[in-house]
Amino acid sequence: MTIADTGLALTLERDYRIAPERMWELWTTAEHLAAWLKPSLDRYKPSTCEADARVGGTYRLTIPGVTADEPDMTAYGTYLELDPPRTLRFTWGWEDMAPDTTEVIIEIAPTDEGCHLTLTHVRLWDEDQRARHAEGWTGTLESLAALYG
C-alpha cells in the first residue's frame, strides 16, 4: 500500500556541487532568494525579498508578473526551525490567495561533490488534524497518481 505509507506531500530531491554551508546561505539570505527563488531565471524581472531568518522571523518574496497583465505574486511565511547547515523549516503561503498554512522543509546533506537537497512541501490543515497526523506527511504526487495509473 504505497499510498498509506506516503500520505500526501510533495518531495523533490537534487544534487548540487556546492557545500552545505553555501546552500544554506542561498536559502536564508534575502539577496540570494530574490535572485533565484522563481520559476525561471531568464523570464522574470528582479524580485524583492525581505527575510529575517531566525525562528519566529518572517520572509516576504515578491515575484513580478512576466507580462504587464500578469499580477505580481508574493510568497510569505514564518521561519519555524533553523539548524544550519542541515534543516530549514518555514510556513509558506501566497498573499491574498492562500494563507501560509502549508509548510516547506529543506534538508541539506553533505555529499562527496557538494550537497544533496531534499525539499518537502506539506499541506497542513487545522491544528486538530496536525496533531492526529503528527507522524508526518511524507510522500509523493506519484503515489497519489498511481491510484489512477
Partner: peptide, 29 residues
C-alpha cells in the same frame, strides 16, 4: 475522478513551481 483530479492539480501546480525554482537554483549556482 474529478474531485481527485482537483487535488492532483493542486499538487501539480506546487510541483511545477518548486521544480522551476530548483532549476533556477541550479542556474544561479
Amino acid at each position: 475522478a474529478a474531485a481527485l483530479d482537483e487535488a492532483l492539480d493542486w499538487m501539480n501546480r506546487a510541483r511545477a513551481f518548486w521544480g522551476g525554482a530548483l532549476d533556477s537554483l541550479d542556474a544561479y549556482v
